[in-house]
């Protein structure tokens, strides 16, 4: 270290991991700044004006947010979004974990089953949304048809015409669409757990449930945290499924913040109000990210220098 004074600037940079790291980070930071911060900033600014389509607005302060606070449709969309995200994420997590555990066992046609599992994910969302639209159709619904034929119900179910029915219908579609991501990611996580740990635990006297509880679950938590953060973010900002299946109806019962924002801004022409609704999503998203940030912090057992 005493010879450090004689080194060139480059030499000193080389010795300082922080400075070097900063330089390597610059290109990525620049890209983030241009492509992420600019639209976000523009949205934030629009939310503080009274811009309409075809007319530049002037700065109006928090006017848009004040009117949103008294807008019952906006609050309904907030409720819908939180409900949609909570219920769908809950089921995606448990069903996804269950499927991952199942596919991690030595079952027949393993790779075939894994490929099948990915199907909902590789079909374009709009396409699967249209399929669901048909499944839920009031006259041609296959579900209603089967149930009627089986004699379980005598009248076709009004899937998309009733508020709560519609909510659960779109949630079901979202779960179907989101499970592959959760299941495949968790499966990848499961496969990093050495089988000999399970053997050691078996010899130590652990039952299958105890093996899950004391080995699988703790070792999987870092991956669960990442996967569920992404899943929650995707679900919270969902747009396509709703827009194709219900367009927010009936009577706004399935409007999410994202669809309401679009509805007000583009077809409705109220760009500023749409932007304000979109901005109102940010605190929720930051909340979700913060939770996962703390959840994701490296646990003590992951630290250390060996290997």
């Amino acid at each position: 270290m005493s010879q450090g004074s004689g080194l060139s600037l480059l030499g000193r940079l080389n010795n300082s991991a922080n400075a070097l790291g900063f330089i390597f980070m610059l290109p990525a930071a620049a890209i983030l700044l241009v492509f992420l911060t600019y639209p976000l900033g523009l949205g934030m600014w629009l939310g503080l004006t009274d811009t309409k389509i075809g007319r530049d607005g002037v700065f109006v302060g928090l006017e848009n947010y004040k009117s949103l606070a008294e807008d019952s449709v906006f609050w309904l969309s907030v409720f819908n979004t939180v409900f949609y995200t909570a219920v769908a994420s809950f089921f995606k997590f448990f069903l996804g974990l269950w499927l991952a555990l199942l596919l991690n066992e030595n079952i027949k046609f393993k790779s075939f089953m894994r490929a099948i599992l990915l199907l909902p994910w590789i079909v374009p969302t709009t396409l699967s949304a249209i399929a669901f639209w048909w499944i839920y159709d009031s006259q041609f619904s296959i579900i209603s048809w089967v149930l009627v034929k089986a004699g379980l119900i005598d009248k076709y179910i009004n899937f998309l015409g009733d508020g709560w029915n519609a909510r659960f219908s779109v949630i079901a579609a979202n779960i179907w669409r989101g499970i592959p991501f959760v299941a495949i990611s968790l499966l990848a996580g499961l496969q990093t757990i050495s089988p000999s740990l399970y053997e050691a635990a078996t010899i130590d006297g652990a039952s299958p449930w105890q093996r899950f509880r004391h080995i699988t679950y703790p070792l999987l938590t870092p991956i669960i945290a990442i996967v569920m953060t992404f899943s929650v973010l995707f679900t919270f900002t969902d747009f396509q499924l709703i827009y194709v299946i219900t367009r927010g109806g009936p009577v706004n019962a399935t409007h999410l913040m994202a669809t309401l924002s679009f509805q007000r801004a583009i077809p409705g022409g109220q760009l500023a109000e749409g932007a304000a609704i979109a901005m109102a999503m940010v605190p929720f998203l930051i909340g979700a990210i913060l939770i996962s940030f703390f959840g994701l912090q490296r646990r003590a057992w992951q630290q250390g220098t060996k290997d």
């Binding site: 050691a200 130590d204 652990a206």
Partner: peptide
């Protein structure tokens, strides 16, 4: 009791908890 070639220590448990695991169960 078995000692494995790759040791199969539970990575998320301290040495104490690794050794205590069977007794705890």
């Amino acid at each position: 009791a078995m000692v494995f070639q790759n040791y199969a220590l539970y990575p998320h448990m301290t040495v104490r908890d690794n050794m205590a695991f069977s007794l705890m169960l």
